[in-house]
Computed example of a mutant assay.
Amino acid sequence: MSQQPFSRPGAYDLSALKRPASSSTPAGPPVAQSGGQPAGQSASTAGGGTAYSVSADEQNFQAVLEASMTAPVLLVFFSPSRMPESAQLAADMQTLSDEFEGRFLVGLVDVEAVPQIAQAMQIPSIPFVVAVVDGRPMPLFQDVAPIDQLRPALTQVAQQLTTQGITGRHQPRSTVVVDEEGVPAADPRYAAAQDALEEGDIDRAVAEYQKLVDANPADAEAAAGLAMAKLLQRTQGVDLQAARRAAADAPDDLDAQIMVADLDMLGGHVEDAFARLVEVVRRTSGDERTKARDHLVTLFGAVGNDDPRVLRGRQNLASALF
């Protein structure tokens, strides 16, 4: 790794981090091997982990580096006793990691607790921040800076990475955040969409969830929220009994069958909705079969792919298709 000093956040040359046209073995110094623990499971030494930060140790460091294959990782090397200001820098980077909503994963390395990591990464001084993209490290800056300087600096880094086609985002860590009373706190990313739903503004909820999905297509929770919001949007003002009569009178009317399936979903009859569309897939072909299948897959997403009803529904769909 280059030993070039970076005195303060400012103008960065990140051209060396541009994604190669073809994959190759990540370059960089040797690192400790993972003991199998997923990145993001240990609490932060700098004051508790957040959705997009993790305390790095020997067990999870390799996994933290591997997370850079999804989106950039910023490694923050600090020492609470030798330089308390560096611990404040680490805490500020944690705060900013949540503000950037997965654009970076911040890996916090307390060099007193895990000196071997700093040695392996050839860290010349404390504090030190290293950007890692696709497993390849590059020094970013080397000094304490207030959060008001860090924020625009990281914004600049994100913009440069975007121009180089590096646009991935990390998923939030599985750690559940609780409030002072121990109640799980709502994820602020979904607040605007959820507020819209509570206010009955379905169109705005769809728009808010769509923004989240556009920003991070891998966000399964946002995708599920979007699917459910669109379900509410499609069924607004529809009379259930009239829809059921229409579907019974015209069993080959695909739109009528889809509408009843949607209404069954809203009524909590998830398996009935799945079964109806599986049967439509079974007895149709061509464009109609494709439309029914795609709509069923959308309903799977609204429920959640880990739900046992979805697992059974997928099995039934596969049987109907093949």
Rank of each mutant, 00 (worst) to 15 (best):
N60T: 10
V129N: 04
M93E: 00
V114W: 01
G102A: 08
N60S: 14
F104P: 03
V133A: 12
S97K: 05
A113T: 09
S86A: 09
A113E: 14
V109E: 03
T95L: 15
V106G: 03
I123D: 04
F78D: 04
V109A: 12
A87Y: 01
E66V: 05
T70F: 05
S79M: 02
A113K: 10
V111I: 15
P115C: 12
N60A: 13
M93P: 01
F77M: 08
D134H: 12
S68K: 06
V132P: 09
M121S: 06
R103C: 11
L65R: 10
L75R: 03
A120T: 00
A71S: 12
L96V: 08
V132S: 13
A131P: 01
A90S: 12
A63P: 00
G107C: 08
E99I: 14
Q116R: 11
A90D: 04
S97H: 06
V76W: 00
S86D: 05
Q88N: 10
G107V: 06
M121D: 02
A67P: 03
G107R: 02
I123Q: 07
A113W: 00
V73I: 11
E99K: 15
P72R: 11
V106P: 01
P72I: 10
D134L: 13
I123M: 10
E112D: 15
P115A: 14
P124G: 13
D92K: 04
A67H: 01
L105F: 07
P124M: 14
E112M: 09
T95I: 14
Q122Y: 07
A120N: 12
A91R: 12
P115Y: 04
D110M: 06
A71L: 10
P115K: 09
A118C: 09
P127K: 10
F77Y: 13
P80W: 05
Q62M: 10
A91P: 00
S97F: 11
Q94F: 01
A113S: 14
S81R: 11
N60R: 05
L108E: 14
L96E: 03
V64P: 02
Q62G: 12
S97E: 08
V64L: 14
L96K: 01
P124A: 14
S68N: 07
A120H: 07
M83Y: 02
S86Y: 02
F128V: 03
E101F: 11
G102L: 05
A90G: 04
V114N: 06
F61H: 12
I126W: 07
S125G: 11
L96I: 11
Q88I: 08
Q88V: 12
V73Y: 02
S68T: 08
A113N: 07
S68C: 11
V114A: 11
V133F: 09
L65Y: 07
N60D: 10
A91Y: 08
A71K: 06
E101T: 13
G107K: 02
F77G: 02
V111Y: 01
A63S: 15
M69V: 01
P80F: 05
A71T: 06
A67D: 08
A113Q: 14
D92P: 08
E99H: 13
